[in-house]
């Protein structure tokens, strides 16, 4: 296994009035096909980490490498989903899904000739997250959970090599959230895509990830890296085993320490 996303000794500060560092000496390495989760206190720089890894922000010091190349512009191979679904209200669900294909090559130039095929792909993806036949509806006609599923589909439609999820389930109720955990688990198992998930929910991190990274208080850096060797495929039942809760407790104590 080779490193797919690497940050090495990265310092970053946002431009603006207070230019205190948001992250300092941040190093992290995520392997190809790995599912990584990042947890840490609020404001510690988790979203900043995502932006650095996708070339939406550039570090003040240190290097960011994705797929063997130093990142100097937005990476183009990433799909992203955030806490808010950020769908376009003037497009139907299906057209929202097609948006990345209208931008990413080679799909972009094939948009006209393969439109039917692309729409079919979008419908399949919707079906796989339990949104069959919802494609013609507008986002505002969907529930919050359904919008979030759509947002996930949009992040995946162009078959990216890297999936970046920034608290994508934060605004959902517990049951929907667990349902979507399974959706993500299956999608990742099927496509072997590299995933970096930022979350506040330690159970979510332990259930989904191969490795969990714990960040310190701002300025953020990785203080603990915990391999999760629960066997796959993991069933939701695993979250009630003592092995699982032990890991959650262990991570929790790290966060409590990091907050001090």
């Amino acid at each position: 296994m080779s490193a797919f996303v690497t940050l090495e000794g990265v310092d970053h500060a946002y431009a603006g009035a207070n230019s205190a560092l948001a992250v300092e000496g941040l190093s992290i390495s995520v392997n190809q096909g790995e599912f990584a989760a990042v947890v840490g206190p609020s404001g510690c720089g988790k979203s900043t980490l995502m932006k650095l890894a996708t070339g939406l922000q550039f570090p003040r010091a240190g290097t960011v490498t994705v797929a063997g190349e130093k990142v100097t512009k937005p990476v183009k191979i990433a799909g992203m989903a955030f806490q808010a679904p950020t769908l376009l209200p003037w497009r139907t669900t299906l057209d929202n899904l097609l948006l990345p294909l209208e931008i990413v090559e080679p799909y972009r130039s094939q948009m006209r000739s393969r439109k039917v095929e692309f729409a079919a792909r979008a419908r399949n993806l919707l079906t796989s997250v339990g949104l069959r036949d919802q494609g013609e509806k507008f986002p505002w006609e969907l529930s919050g959970g359904m919008q979030q599923r759509t947002s996930l589909c949009r992040a995946l439609i162009h078959e990216p090599q890297l999936l970046m999820l920034d608290e994508p389930f934060g605004a959902l109720d517990a049951f929907t959230r667990e349902e979507l955990w399974c959706v993500i688990r299956d999608l990742q198992a099927a496509s072997k895509i590299t995933v970096i998930l930022v979350t506040h929910d330690l159970r979510e991190a332990v259930f989904l990830a191969d490795r969990v990274f714990v960040m310190s208080q701002r300025p953020g850096r990785i203080v603990v890296e915990r391999k999760i060797d629960l066997p796959r495929p993991r069933d939701l039942e695993v979250t009630f085993t003592s092995a699982f809760t032990d890991i959650v407790h262990e991570l929790r104590s790290h966060i409590v320490k990091a907050r001090q």
Partner: peptide, 12 residues
């Protein structure tokens, strides 16, 4: 929305 801009930028 900056998030939406980010989604699109990360697609190139």
């Amino acid at each position: 929305e900056p998030e939406l801009e980010d989604v699109l930028k990360a697609l190139g």
